[in-house]
Amino acid sequence: MATHVHTHSPASPSERLLEPVWAQVMDITNEAEGISTYWLKFTDPAVEAAYTFEPGQFNMVYLPGYGEAAISISSNPADPTLVGHTIRFVGNVTRAISRLKVGDVVGIRGPFGSYWPMKEMEGHDVIIACGGIGLPPLRPAIYHIMNNRDKFGKVYLLYGARTPKDLLYPTEFEEWERAGIQVQVTVDRADEDWQGQVGVVPMLFYRFRMDAPNSVVLTCGPEIMIRFVVYEGLARRVPAEQIYVSLERNMKCGQGSCGHCQLGPYFICKDGPVFRFDTLQPYFNVEEF
């Protein structure tokens, strides 16, 4: 910054980034035990008209008096007039969100963060490997691929959850299959009624043959799962530059100002949440970093 300007200029849009805009809950879909999708519509038509997002981005969802939580957008990027947030009720804010009803209003700031490299992925095979609540930030990527199916090669979704009843969006799997996405689902544990696969997401890499140099891996889920998905990708010679991971940290501002979400040189809210693995590699296995 050079010399300071001695004028008091009025607040510009880049200064309103700490103030939420309002959105109304239009619908609530119960996805699994403790997880629901909230369908939001901005109350201000001008905001609605201006709002777009990229697959993998997130919003800060604000409940006045309770605080904010960074929540990825899980809906179709082609229709940003209805923004979907699939939320697991685990923290102070999300538990309060679980008590919202249709018609209630929440604050929204966003969209923030980096996104899945949909453009760069064109012409490649795509392997989407995710677990648990890691699928919602990837669903917009799935929708994008379905909207532009001919631009991508083979597409695999490797998805795992703790038990069959924890699987998100199971009713959509068929539609995804029809759109030419090979959906492989596994659960960590099941009862004997479960006909599907049992085992962890990284093991699904053993179930198909990939064209590694031409494949892009997108992964999101518990950090421990991400690690092993990355190892499986690297073991099969997928270049580190073609593996993308989405990370989660405590976030307050959403724009790399408050400092909370730092991982090494990165503000996960601004430089992430989606990272190309090779840029993350030096810090990835440092304990408690």
């Binding site: 648990g132 960590d188 962890v200 990284p202 093991m203």
Partner: peptide, 14 residues
């Protein structure tokens, strides 16, 4: 691979 899988299940990562 079975051991790795068991470990991850044991961690109950979700």
């Amino acid at each position: 691979s079975r051991l790795m899988s068991s470990r991850l299940q044991l961690l109950d990562m979700f």
